[in-house]
Simulated assay, not measured.
Amino acid sequence: MANDLTNSLVDRQNVLNNRYALSQAEHHLALGGVFFDGECVFTKQHVMAMFDVSDATIERYLSAHNEELKSNGYMLLRGKKLKEFKSLSNVTLMDEGNKAPILGLFTFRSVLNLAMLLTESEKAKLIRSRLLDIVIDTVAARSGGKTKYINQRDNQYLLAAFQEQGYRKQFTDALDQYVDANHWKYSRFTNLIYQSIFHENATEYRRVLKLAESDSIRETLYSEVLTLIASYEAGIAHELERASKQLNRKLTQKETEELFSKFEAHPLFIPLILDARTKMASRDLCFRDALHEKLSAYVKSVPEADFERFLGETSKSLEEQLNDPETLAVFKRLKDR
């Protein structure tokens, strides 16, 4: 995660989409506010005092980042809601006026959003620093301190990994049967699959994730990426067999590489590849603080659903999943087919 949140919309949104970190932040930061309509809110006067900035500064940020702040909870009260808010005994509107027809309110989430934007405020800078610490601590605590294998906490991972192993065997068997012998062909053509999907060979991927030689690359891949790799492996195995039988001989290395090029250009894979690149680049930057430079154009903020998926109550470590009777029953059914 970038240390300067003021410059990165993606990093700001990754913080704000992590409800577990926000819950910890609300407890530890203790910013105050007023309880209204089921949540803690802040008037502009509250925010000006909190960050020690002027009304004009707040208005400038509201104008420059209106859509972002609104999407994270900033709201305008009118009519009945405004009347209800004004009736609260602990609310003082001061210069905002008791007769104002519209009143802007910040939720806790949008206050943090503003804190990550404000460059003029030392208090905002302190909140940003504390917030980053809270995010790091929360992700580490909820993932068991093993962000390298955070992909395995997804309840879809085991099934995707199991199925990919089967297609991997089809792929390697096809290389044995239909491609000329070459000591490096398994790693060579596996790297072609990696490069086609995420623009990195095995060595580059290991460097980005800081993996040791003993670490398995596939054990760090997200379920969607594993499923796409399995699709490649099954499809290429089929094409190798078809081409070899048409020629009535094994394929040369060059012919096999040309087959790969034609295969990856099929329109069927375009949306799947784009989705896999986006998920991989975005999640690795958010959860593992790992930037795939060749995929930087695909980085987006991680949606709230992904925080639930990898950090939520239903996410489990691989050991927990393997001890789950329901999971074991699924694998038994697959094995018995």
Rank of each mutant, 00 (worst) to 15 (best):
A237S: 09
C286E: 13
G104R: 11
R277L: 03
S129D: 05
K335A: 14
E239I: 01
D95A: 13
R337H: 13
A2D: 10
T92K: 15
D52R: 14
S261E: 06
G104D: 08
A124G: 03
Q165N: 13
D215I: 05
D95G: 09
Q246A: 14
R337M: 13
T278I: 02
F51E: 07
E241V: 00
Q170V: 07
K335G: 08
L114Y: 00
Y20G: 00
V299S: 02
L16T: 08
M50H: 04
L16W: 12
R277I: 05
N155Y: 07
T252D: 01
F171P: 06
M116V: 11
V135H: 12
D137I: 00
L76E: 11
D284G: 08
F85G: 03
L334V: 04
N155S: 10
T327G: 13
S301C: 12
A30M: 13
I102C: 07
S110Y: 04
L105S: 05
A329D: 15
T172R: 10
M94W: 08
G38F: 04
H28T: 03
A21W: 04
G38H: 10
G79S: 04
N248H: 13
Q195T: 10
L62D: 04
L132N: 10
R309S: 02
L69Q: 07
Q246K: 15
A265Q: 03
Q45A: 09
H183P: 01
V139Q: 10
D306W: 14
V111R: 05
L132T: 06
N98S: 11
H65V: 00
H292E: 03
S282L: 05
E39Q: 15
A234L: 09
A174K: 06
N72Q: 10
N14L: 01
N191W: 08
Q321K: 15
I273R: 12
N182C: 06
R168L: 15
K254W: 02
N14A: 04
S317I: 05
T256N: 09
L118C: 07
D324H: 09
V47N: 12
A160S: 14
V41I: 03
Y232W: 11
R337C: 09
R207P: 01
L69E: 08
R168P: 04
A243H: 03
V34P: 03
R218F: 15
R249Y: 03
S143E: 08
I58S: 00
A297W: 04
E120T: 14
Q253G: 01
S214M: 09
M280D: 02
N201T: 07
V330Q: 10
T252G: 06
N90A: 10
G38K: 07
F263E: 01
E326I: 09
A100Y: 01
L334Y: 00
D215C: 03
A161G: 08
D336K: 12
D180A: 12
E326K: 14
R142W: 13
L221K: 01
T43M: 08
R283T: 00
S187Y: 11
S110P: 00
D289C: 07
V15S: 06
E319V: 15
